[in-house]
């Protein structure tokens, strides 16, 4: 009894999957993030398809798309826009910046200065920008995909923890497997494939889907489980500082979106587990006992340590 919305979501996943080969899980995560009205951070090396993913998503979902390449000399006004004096009209006319789009790709966000970064992040959080005293709403839906090179690269300003927290998910794409890579090498130019993609759903349908995420049922045992996860992250000395309430809300929202994508009207522990790494890995920090561990290992420990409530 799949309603058209779910069919359209599936179609979108298939379409994006035909551009980004062998990365269905990452695509589903990205779409869940969008459905949950969160913003996405993709962290990976250059050339892994971050930009292509963002482009394909925008295209499939029929979203107005803008790309901002972050550089060290980028200024806040370059993102938000500025009021420019027009001689003919003898007045200041606001020239909106690239942020006034439905899907923003903030490429290499960690190359810009903290000041510029925070201009974007504030806009993400508020859903509006205030320029020269005037508040202007951002379009609906509004979705930011930021990409970042791993922080150890030269000439970068790593996002501080508080800013990282504004992204609902952080994912990595990783190298494609051999089969996908072969198909990629054999196939035609990705840009051409992209250009041919039809629109899978309208922005209005996307908003409807977003509204339906809130309707996905969450049973008390599942809330028990989410609370157990949060509690463990706070009590265990494997982590420095536990997960915040915002992280808990985000986890639940993402799990709901994931369940919807999988045509379920209720959230299962499996849904929580599926989005857990993407939602919490950038919010968990190793405690003194586990300094050597990667964030993925940390999340795995959290996942395996917490039993499902009986």
């Amino acid at each position: 009894m799949a309603s058209p919305i779910e069919d359209r979501l599936d179609l979108a996943i298939r379409q994006v999957g035909s551009v980004i080969l062998g990365k269905e899980r990452a695509i589903r995560l990205a779409l869940s993030c969008l459905l949950a009205r969160g913003h996405l951070l993709i962290e990976d090396l250059p050339g892994m398809g971050k930009t292509t993913l963002a482009h394909a998503l925008a295209h499939s979902l029929g979203l107005h798309y803008q790309r901002i390449q972050f550089t060290s000399d980028l200024l806040p006004a370059d993102i938000l826009g500025a009021a420019v004096y027009e001689r003919q009209r003898e007045t200041f006319v606001f020239h909106p910046g690239p942020i006034f789009a439905q899907l923003i790709l903030a490429d290499e966000i960690n190359r810009a200065t903290p000041k510029t970064q925070s201009a974007l992040l504030e806009a993400m959080e508020e859903g509006q920008v205030t320029i020269e005293g005037e508040t202007r709403p951002l379009p609906e839906p509004f979705f930011v995909i930021a990409t970042q090179n791993p922080a150890y690269q030269i000439g970068t300003f790593p996002l501080p923890e508080s800013q990282l927290d504004r992204f609902l998910m952080r994912i990595e794409l990783g190298y494609p497997d051999a089969q996908a890579e072969r198909a990629l090498l054999e196939g035609e130019d990705r840009r051409e494939v992209l250009a041919r993609l039809p629109v899978a759903m309208t922005p209005a349908q996307l908003q409807e889907a977003q509204a339906r995420v809130n309707g996905v049922h969450v049973a008390p045992p599942l809330l028990d489980y989410v609370q157990a996860l949060l509690g463990f992250s706070r009590q265990s000395n494997r982590f420095r500082g536990g997960l915040s309430p915002r992280a808990g809300l985000g986890l639940l929202r993402a799990a709901r979106a994931w369940a919807l994508l999988h045509r379920r009207a209720h959230v299962l522990p499996e849904d929580v587990q599926a989005v857990l790494t993407a939602v919490v890995s950038h919010r968990l920090h190793p405690g003194e006992d586990s300094l050597e561990q990667s964030s993925a290992e940390l999340v795995h420990q959290l996942l395996t340590a917490v039993a499902l409530p009986a």
Binding site: L268, P269, E270, Q273, L303, T304, A305, V306, A307, L308
Partner: peptide, 9 residues
């Protein structure tokens, strides 16, 4: 069944 393993998994 692992303690954290959900029913479908």
């Amino acid at each position: 069944r692992g303690a954290h393993e959900g029913p479908l998994a």
